[in-house]
Design a protein around this nucleic acid. Sequence first.
DNA 1: GCCGATTTGTCCGTATGTATC
DNA 2: CGATACATACGGACAAATCGG
Lengths: 243, 243
Amino acid sequence: MPKVKFDAIYKDLKRKIENEVYPFQSLLPSENSMVTTYECSRNTIRRAISALASEGYVQSLHGIGVRVIFQPVEQAVFTMGTIESFQESAARNHLDVTTKVICFMELTADERTAQKYGFPVGSDLYYIQRVRYVDDKPLILDINIFLKDVVKTLTEEIATGSIYDYLEHTVGLSIVTSKRKITVEHITEIDEKYLELSDYNCLAVVTSQTFDADGVMFEYTQSRHRPDYFSFQDTAVRRHSIT
Amino acid sequence: MPKVKFDAIYKDLKRKIENEVYPFQSLLPSENSMVTTYECSRNTIRRAISALASEGYVQSLHGIGVRVIFQPVEQAVFTMGTIESFQESAARNHLDVTTKVICFMELTADERTAQKYGFPVGSDLYYIQRVRYVDDKPLILDINIFLKDVVKTLTEEIATGSIYDYLEHTVGLSIVTSKRKITVEHITEIDEKYLELSDYNCLAVVTSQTFDADGVMFEYTQSRHRPDYFSFQDTAVRRHSIT
DNA sequence: GCCGATTTGTCCGTATGTATC
DNA sequence: CGATACATACGGACAAATCGG
């Protein structure tokens, strides 16, 4: 159970929206009424609402109320949205997942490597290539580079499971911010070798840099997705400061 | 000038980070010290900081401070990130932009159309196809569908410019939430006809639904991007509630 | 290992402004 | 105009994490 109040309220509202206790297009109870039902301050209610708004669940309307704009979506086979690991995404969709490590090595960043990935020259790094299978179909080619200083001991066996699980629970690293970029690129020989690309000659590439709680970038990842199973979702809210 | 206090502070900090007054990896002044420099309450400071955090500019570290993790990026030719129009993106990068309308029609949503795009059956719609050129290169094929009730009068001439400008300023519509999905799809005949795709056989497709202030979805857009000029950026922050 | 200073995290109560109806 | 509802802002209180002595 979340012991943080606004988080508990956020989760409660989210659940009620997903279960259509508050259906699409309806208004949530007013902030003031929620203050009494949840026995908290209005600030706390507003924090929960703004979290929902940033996920595209609701929309605040000045002078009117907070409207539900969530609609249950037809989930693509593999959808990325918030910052979650492959394992988490797969689990959310009840999919059978395996991972094969095709390359596991340690290296030191030379000038070119440092420039390309953004690590300091001379850093000790892990370089890992993995193929991700969902229901025995090879869908993703992952290239991970980790800063050895931060992730400490990493083995091929750990890489077969969830590296993030390892980092969060065993090493005790709390992952915080992640910057991502999505592009579409021509396939390479490696892509062709490991992914069953049929007649696609390009694929979706998600590159991301992850920063740990000290603000150091400790991970660079490139996920190369088969187009037919790739989907990325996003909600954007425009600040209505139309000056 | 922003007359909203937290927004002014947000913009000031943002500028200082971009100009490296607060350089990469440094800590911002503590919240309490900013309370005195900006002459405001701590809540107001915290709102500004959290806006910066959600854009990947800074990272709050409990008990330590707020670390700058912004790094000036090599901008791709055309980068999408927040909810901004094609025109705005282009202007931000000082690009020369033209638009050609290749289809402009009105139609009424039948069963199939309504299902496919999420409009109510029987809605009156505008259906528009446009090609976007940047420096005379055809980069994007846009398919827009608008709810006629909301956008009122829309002409081919308006479609040649920025439809959003028209909607915001003339019709007075305040656009608020937008849900997007990014996929990679095979090219169609129309793509081939209008975009110079060289040897790519697929492209990046961004579909989005936009909701107005009343929570009505009034727009469905599919933007089909040439792979070599497509880039989407994103920052995700994980709530550290590792229960 | 403990303590205290610093710093961010959560929460409260209140006041005032502004938009809608 | 008044009632309702969200938006912004203030100031204060206590908790939790970090770090140096």
